Amino acid sequence: MNQIKKILLIARDKNLAEIIYFCLEGWGYEVDILKENPNLAEIKKKEPDLIILDFPFSHKEGLSLCREIKEGFVTSSLPLIVLIDKKQLRKHLLNLKHGIDDYLLKPPDPLDLRVRIEMALKRTQYSFYTNSLTNLPGGKIIEEILKEKITKREPFSFAHADIDNFKYFNDKYGYLKGDRVITQTAYILYQTVKKYGNPKDFIGHIGGDDFVFITSPDKEKIIASEFIYEFERLMPLHYSPEDRVCGYIEVEDRTNQLRKVPLMSISIAIVNNQQREFKNVVQINDALTELKSYLKKIPGSKFMVERRKLNQGKKQRRPSFSLIQNREVLDKKKFPPLGQLLLNRGKITPYLLEELLDIHFKRAIPLGEILKDRGVIADEELQKFLSLQRKNS
């Protein structure tokens, strides 16, 4: 059963407050009303899920209250919808920067108000369960989608991707470079699923170096193989040239022994409900855990699809398809990324490239467009580098 959301209405206009209160209660919300200059402590005590503020912006108290709400540790994530007079809108439009999430002209249309509230609550719920680094949905949302797939008996494939040897990379190169590996992995997965998957396919980030995607069984292999290819093509560039040539890094293990650790690879475990019925998420997790344990014994990037078949009364693992590609094979196929080409030709510094790549990964904007917008390279010269990139492919 869904928990009833609580809305806090802060209003000076008694008549308007009564109308909004009547609407909110009718829509199934729990409603509290505060009047006359409430302070942050009073707002905290109400523990609302959303705040509607009807406060004249001609008074500094209104702006101050907005700022306090958005700067408060407990209240900063609460969606804040402001009701404003049309006459005040143009004059105080710039004041919306004080942390307001949305606004409506007074008196608000009930349908508009209801839609804005629902959208704000959904955004908040989504952001609460998303990874702060990649902005991908996390465990709670992943679980809900899987439950829905199981309930509706829809055919689905659930894949878990794990970056091998990421911890050792993070230990040697530091957390900032480690974060770039995570954001680029998220971007690669997003682009791969978008290109080769279905329109409604799902991508999630459990945390750390663990990612998931949900697709249809007919798309699982192409997504996994193309994801591996792009990962293997790009991830070595996060290492120093010396480590790339060696193909490993030297690090101390938990026993303080120096060991050679291979460059990062990706392992993808996939289960689907084509030949095996899953009754709950726990069964899916158990199947993935067993498969991941098996994959850890195999070096390099690979994926495997789990299918269960009865053989003389016993269940045996029979991978329908597995992929293991070593770096030598991939090296023959890969072409240099645009950023690496510009770096090699001295057109861009490593520091600027890292800054632009952060924007590229997080906002999904093509690197070429970012380079042009920043004035780093003209369009004509960019086209020459793109042509050179295609020749090397």
Rank of each mutant, 00 (worst) to 15 (best):
residue 101 D to I: 04
residue 168 Y to S: 12
residue 199 P to C: 09
residue 55 F to G: 09
residue 374 R to K: 15
residue 218 D to L: 11
residue 173 Y to C: 04
residue 323 L to S: 14
residue 340 Q to I: 10
residue 124 T to A: 08
residue 1 M to I: 11
residue 238 H to V: 00
residue 265 S to H: 12
residue 325 Q to V: 13
residue 155 P to S: 11
residue 335 F to D: 13
residue 333 K to E: 09
residue 193 V to P: 03
residue 11 A to P: 07
residue 216 S to K: 12
residue 359 I to C: 07
residue 195 K to Q: 15
residue 177 K to Y: 02
residue 70 K to T: 07
residue 382 L to K: 07
residue 275 Q to A: 11
residue 171 D to V: 01
residue 61 E to I: 02
residue 43 I to V: 13
residue 368 G to P: 12
residue 118 E to T: 07
residue 111 L to C: 03
residue 14 K to F: 04
residue 348 I to C: 08
residue 114 R to W: 04
residue 126 Y to R: 13
residue 314 K to M: 12
residue 276 R to K: 14
residue 66 C to H: 11
residue 180 R to S: 08
residue 327 R to G: 01
residue 248 Y to V: 00
residue 117 I to Y: 03
residue 302 K to W: 03
residue 71 E to G: 13
residue 352 L to F: 04
residue 149 K to C: 07
residue 307 R to P: 04
residue 270 I to K: 03
residue 358 D to L: 12
residue 13 D to K: 09
residue 208 G to T: 08
residue 64 S to V: 02
residue 121 L to R: 02
residue 305 V to T: 11
residue 127 S to I: 10
residue 111 L to Q: 10
residue 26 G to W: 02
residue 45 K to Y: 06
residue 174 G to W: 02
residue 134 T to K: 12
residue 134 T to V: 13
residue 8 L to Q: 10
residue 378 A to N: 07
residue 373 D to Y: 08
residue 385 F to E: 07
residue 145 I to R: 15
residue 286 D to L: 12
residue 307 R to T: 15
residue 323 L to K: 00
residue 37 N to S: 06
residue 281 V to C: 07
residue 132 S to C: 11
residue 356 L to D: 05
residue 288 L to E: 08
residue 131 N to T: 05
residue 375 G to I: 10
residue 31 V to S: 04
residue 110 P to L: 11
residue 337 P to H: 15
residue 62 G to R: 00
residue 104 L to H: 06
residue 138 G to L: 05
residue 366 P to M: 14
residue 90 R to G: 01
residue 327 R to H: 09
residue 119 M to Y: 08
residue 161 A to I: 09
residue 185 T to S: 12
residue 38 P to G: 10
residue 286 D to E: 14
residue 154 E to P: 02
residue 293 S to N: 14
residue 15 N to Y: 12
residue 186 A to W: 05
residue 323 L to H: 08
residue 251 V to E: 01
residue 36 E to N: 09
residue 267 S to P: 00
residue 347 K to P: 00
residue 140 K to L: 15
residue 79 P to R: 03
residue 129 Y to G: 04
residue 130 T to C: 09
residue 374 R to C: 06
residue 343 L to K: 13
residue 43 I to S: 03
residue 19 I to R: 14
residue 180 R to K: 09
residue 14 K to Y: 14
residue 304 M to Q: 10
residue 272 N to Y: 04
residue 52 I to Y: 02
residue 244 R to N: 01
residue 193 V to F: 07
residue 239 Y to R: 03
residue 58 S to C: 05
residue 131 N to M: 07
residue 12 R to P: 02
residue 82 V to Q: 01
residue 162 D to W: 14
residue 252 E to W: 04
residue 294 Y to L: 13
residue 236 P to V: 03
residue 175 Y to W: 08
residue 70 K to W: 08
residue 87 K to W: 06
residue 71 E to Q: 15
residue 206 I to T: 06
residue 236 P to W: 02
residue 57 F to P: 03
residue 175 Y to T: 14
residue 7 I to M: 01
residue 354 E to S: 15
residue 356 L to T: 00
residue 85 D to N: 14
residue 34 L to V: 07
residue 241 P to D: 03
residue 129 Y to E: 15
residue 159 A to E: 11
residue 54 D to Y: 05
residue 288 L to A: 03
residue 150 I to H: 03
